[in-house]
Design a protein around this nucleic acid. Structure first.
Lengths: 354, 354
DNA sequence: TTGAAAGCGCTAACAC
DNA sequence: GTGTTAGCGCTTTCAA
């Protein structure tokens, strides 16, 4: 709510308008419009003249005016929880390239916190600003979902499946299984999980829920009892992982392996372990999900998911819907794969007399 | 250039328009407009009725139409080289918060490569889409600069000073000095630099140039001869740093310390050193600039710069210009500070018989 | 194949 | 304080 000091608009040098182009080309504005947008009911000669005139005046249509007249904005709203997190930044970049290539601008909506998410969905600033919406990993409640549907525009989700909405994602349960089975195959039986925050302060990402459930299933299907006390949660990011590891270390016995819901949590955990001089994987193994760009630096074993590809795929899906090429709410599931590095190994065996 | 399949626009449920609100409130559209935008020449009672009517119809003005009529878009263009890099993502988040709070939307332009930067400046998609532009660390040649000035709209740079343009940045030379003097004080004399790419494939960031120059100056002012052969460059990101370190290791003698132009290069270098089992700082010390969020994880000594703050400060500057509160092209320089961690130490002393 | 004319939904200048 | 009247710069029928 800033004060509105109205700057004079007279200063701006007047852009060439469609009428200028029409005059120069000796045609009507309507013909200019048709020529420039590649409609086929214009003779080649006329179009040629128009294009030249437009170039000469370095004309390009005002998006405002053309949007107002046509009802389309040529803009896509991209809604992300945190642009600063590697996953989201990378997905946005992947999406951007495809959308930009297709001639769409990208309006960024950065939520930052659940509070501001709620405000966002109340005010719905997207209403007449965009032609379609791409939401990244947003966990939405009924109210949010309704607000989104009320927009009645093409919608695609990335990383969080919404019933009836097209989306791109990985199979969370499968990814967790890859990670947990890797640990089990190495002989681990005491496996802890560092999960994302699930309480109200956090977003409560859907993938978090899926991965927690997947963790339990994976253990049980391997005949290992699930222990609630070995699941700790941390806020989004490295610090969250570091704190969660600290909490885990405060428990009665340190497990022999930790599965982190995603790499940043794992990386935070590694920092805590390094500072406490606990050897990895000598005393404890660590594995994550993502294949974050830093995973290779800290030599983290992880389950890789293709992030830019998902952004690109989601955008293509959106374009398909916009162009009427797709109607079904498809559910694109991209594969993950285990990347074994140096933070996992055979379990530490306690001294026989211990 | 995608095929234009025009979707029917008839499907969209008609938003309430300003006339609907005016009718419901029993006033003219102009009064609705005035009331909603907080103009003071409306009686309290009238405004009240209008606000209620607007809420009842959940009306909000079409940005297209209001933009067309007022000549303002309430949108800021934010131009970044790579959203995926920590520095840029973090700066964008800092900027976003301030702009969003002030009621502006953010249109993201992701360049990705110098080629696409050039295309961007040729086509200048910003022309009528935004009220002002924030460019992040973009090295611009004369042509780019002209294109930007031709827009004749408020402009602020972050991380790269443009003559006559307001901006926010750190003092690159000073930051380099902090880093290099730290190494020198520890006794290092053979200090290499890993610099950003300067050839055509890279953007050739201005800060890169400044930091290279600063490096030479810092050495010489300490009485250490600058050696061209100890400067290697790497592409933007971790891989670039890793490759540069490999190149450095291929030289006749490994220096005792490496100064990286920014942390991601340093982190890449650390990965190469770890893989080659070269002890840090036992055999070689490493220092960077940024205080990247991963710096604490790899225990990297660095010169910290406040990134979200710079984004926020740049945005405030932009708002000041937009609102006519600032006219001078101010040059805001924010301080940096040395953060000593574990990758720097006393220099390795060669075996006496070596 | 082209042009004329009527909007798209607002804001701003000018009346009252 | 409030209403009336012109646009803002395009696109899109509809006619020719």
């Amino acid at each position: 709510m800033s004060e509105d000091v109205q700057p004079s608009r007279a200063q701006r040098p007047r852009h060439a308008g469609i009428i200028d182009v029409a005059t120069l080309a000796g045609v009507s504005p309507a013909t200019v419009s048709r020529s420039l947008r590649g409609h086929d009911n214009v003779s080649a000669a006329t179009r040629q003249r128009v294009l030249e005139a437009a170039r000469e005046l370095s004309y390009s249509a005002s998006p405002q005016a053309s949007g107002l007249a046509s009802g389309r904005t040529r803009t896509i709203g991209v809604v992300v929880p945190f642009v600063t997190r590697w996953f989201f930044a990378t997905a946005v970049a992947g999406a951007y390239d495809v959308l930009h290539e297709a001639g769409y601008d990208v309006l960024l909506y950065h939520l930052g916190s659940p509070d501001s998410r709620d405000r966002f969905f109340e005010r719905m600033p997207l209403a007449r600003r965009v032609d379609a919406v791409l939401t990244l990993s947003l966990p939405l409640n009924e109210e949010h979902t309704l607000a989104l549907r009320a927009l009645d525009m093409p919608l695609v989700t990335l990383g969080a499946r919404l019933p009836g909405v097209a989306g791109v994602r990985i199979d969370d349960a499968a990814a967790v299984r890859q990670a947990v089975y890797h640990l089990i195959h190495q002989g681990h039986e005491e496996i802890a999980m560092i999960a994302g925050d699930e309480d109200d302060r956090g977003f409560g990402f859907l993938s978090s829920r899926a991965r927690r459930a997947g963790f339990r299933q994976a253990l049980e299907s391997a005949g290992i009892a699930f222990r609630e006390d070995l699941v700790v949660s941390g806020e989004y990011g490295i610090e969250g992982g570091a704190q969660a590891m600290t909490a885990l270390m405060a428990g009665p016995t340190l497990p022999t392996a930790v599965f982190a819901e995603y790499d940043e949590l794992a990386i935070g955990a590694l920092r805590t372990l390094r500072r406490a001089s606990i050897p990895v994987p000598g005393r404890i193994s660590v594995i994550g999900i993502d294949d974050h760009e830093m995973a290779s630096v800290v030599d983290l074993t992880t389950v890789a998911q293709p992030v830019p590809d998902q952004g690109a795929a989601a955008s293509r899906l959106l374009l398909d819907i916009l162009d009427g090429r797709s109607v079904e709410p498809v559910d694109v599931v991209v594969p993950t794969r285990l990347v074994v590095r140096g933070t996992t190994g055979a379990p530490f065996s306690r001294a026989p007399d211990g």
